[in-house]
Write a protein that binds this DNA or RNA. Structure first.
Lengths: 328, 328
DNA sequence: CTGAAAGCGCTTACAG
DNA sequence: CTGAAAGCGCTTACAG
């Protein structure tokens, strides 16, 4: 492996000059530049970026932590992030917590040990306090979550409005008792959705019923059990909102297999709008989220911060959602 | 940010000693060690790993490049890789080529610029020559692909046998004309599958029919068109093998929507065994691949190489597949 | 058992 | 326009 020093010797200049050429310093005389460039090509020299980064005190790397790749929604966000990072001169390490089996701490350590410059937290379930502390130590951007009273950039859909829209759709179809099936993790986006859902019910003159909301792990058995538990208490369950397409796909399967017992076919609306919602049979009515854009925008915001560009006054960035009515 | 130097000064020792403590050098006197450890905690000192890596001439980072996260099969492999890397002291950068829109070259550059130590190529469509060249320059492991005559470690299922099994299953059900729908990219695993598929047909006394095999991009319209094009030429198309669950899900949708016109409901077997195959209606009969293990083993092999552990004589590592018969 | 010194491969303020 | 020198924060062979 050749180094700046070697290039310099061969070109008859100093390392400093080679470095300047490498970094397009306009002060370098054209002839000198060409001479150096020629040697660089000849030796097929590639700079050692570890050295450069150490010297410049920046790893040029960011970390995006998301719950799991097993859900196509998060995979979509990761795709957007990848796209945004390419050509930026940065690299992105995408990590998953797999619902806390792997520790978030591992990724935060990348920041502490100078291996990464900034962090994007996707649907993390960190406490507000922990988030506040973290954001004071490192550049952080939130994706799919936000806290009004926290001074951290965030990008997400308007979850309250989205859930409101979903519930209204079901209500408009004449369904009265509408359940809400969600994963096991608490999150600010879930809070927002719950509030929109409750508001819609309330406006329709219905008392909120606590046992209409049920948590389930994202696997078939648990989802079946969860829905059945609502149905038991609420004999005339007519509609269901699922917190993700994946959850909804298990519900559909449960109904088809007869494991979920409901009086009729329930109105079902899920969140996300992944390809799953298209290919399911029946096709899912879904609140589509701009996954790609969510990931893309998160990276944009973080890069802006790392480059010390001025930030918008409003830290919250809402991307539009879209209710796609299909067969459920 | 504190440094080794600062810790050293405060502890009244040299940087060398601090470094030794950090690296658990047993030569350090216990009292000295404790003194240093105490200061480290007091200052909440975290080593700068960029500096350490530069000095040790290793980035402690590997790269895994896969086609896309949009396919849950690859997402599953990524999960396995994540799991294998955790606690290894390495980091993994997972990149996607998105079918060559983003360049593979970007990731290879990470190796050239010392930002990564090794590479895992998942279903790449690199030429044998390019692969050979690359593997001479950097530690490389192949996943979902292999070449008999290339001296590169690889891990995959036995694709020939798997496709053979699938075709035999369809044949056993009495289906004669069996089509094969695949994505647009060439790959060694596809080649293996084609060979198993042909062999099964041949053994059943059927001439191989070129227009039974059709390529389609992984989206609904293209898949519909592809299947229809087979059906047109082969009036009595009875069975279909799909190169992925995703492809199969579009086929199912096409049949349901009536966009795909077939005389009867075809026997359909797909590859992968992602959760998609479970939740589809009808549920997919599929050749399940051990996605997680594929990713996990790939990382294991690469790490072994990077640590200069002896390699197995046989470079090819086959993981078992499993035919899961469901409703299609 | 420990320290002084060199060096990993870059960049940059300073001087000329 | 260019070079000598220092330094980013570590580790390690060498000497004692």
């Amino acid at each position: 492996m050749s180094s700046v020093k070697e290039v310099a010797k061969r070109a008859g200049v100093s390392s400093a000059t080679v470095s300047r050429v490498l970094n397009n310093d306009p002060a370098v005389k054209p002839e000198t530049r060409n001479k150096v460039l020629h040697i660089i090509r000849e030796l097929n020299y590639k700079p050692n970026l570890m050295a450069k980064n150490l010297r410049k005190q920046s790893s040029k790397t960011i970390v995006m932590v998301l719950p799991t790749m097993a859900n196509p929604f998060f995979a979509g966000i990761a795709r957007g992030a990848q796209a945004a990072i390419s050509e930026s001169g940065y690299n992105v390490i995408i990590g998953t917590t797999e619902f806390d089996k792997l520790q978030l701490g591992t990724y935060i350590n990348l920041l502490n040990t100078n291996l990464a410059d900034g962090l994007i937290l996707v649907s993390s379930n960190m406490s507000k306090e922990a988030l506040l502390k973290l954001s004071k130590q490192h550049p952080v951007v939130l994706c799919n979550e936000y806290y009004d009273d926290l001074d951290i950039q965030s990008v997400s859909i308007d979850n309250r409005q989205a859930a409101y829209d979903a519930a209204r759709e079901l209500l408009a179809r004449g369904y009265r008792n509408i359940g809400f099936v969600t994963g096991t993790r608490e999150s600010s986006s879930l809070l927002g959705r719950m509030s929109g859902y409750r508001q819609a019910l309330q406006e329709a003159g219905m008392a909120f019923n606590e046992h209409l909301v049920v948590k389930a792990k994202s696997n078939y058995e648990q989802v079946v059990e969860a829905v059945n538990s609502i149905a038991e208490k609420e004999k005339s369950l007519e509609g269901l909102i699922a917190n993700s397409d994946m959850l909804a796909s298990y519900i559909l399967k449960g109904i088809k297999e007869g494991d979920i017992r409901l009086p009729g076919r329930p109105g079902l609306i899920s969140f996300d709008g992944t390809f799953l919602s298209e290919v399911m049979n029946p096709a899912l009515t879904t609140v589509a989220q701009p996954m790609y854009d969510l990931g893309y925008a998160s990276v944009g915001l973080l890069l802006q911060k790392l480059r010390n560009r001025p930030e918008t006054a409003d830290k919250r960035h809402f991307l539009p959602h879209r209710l796609i009515v299909r067969e459920t």
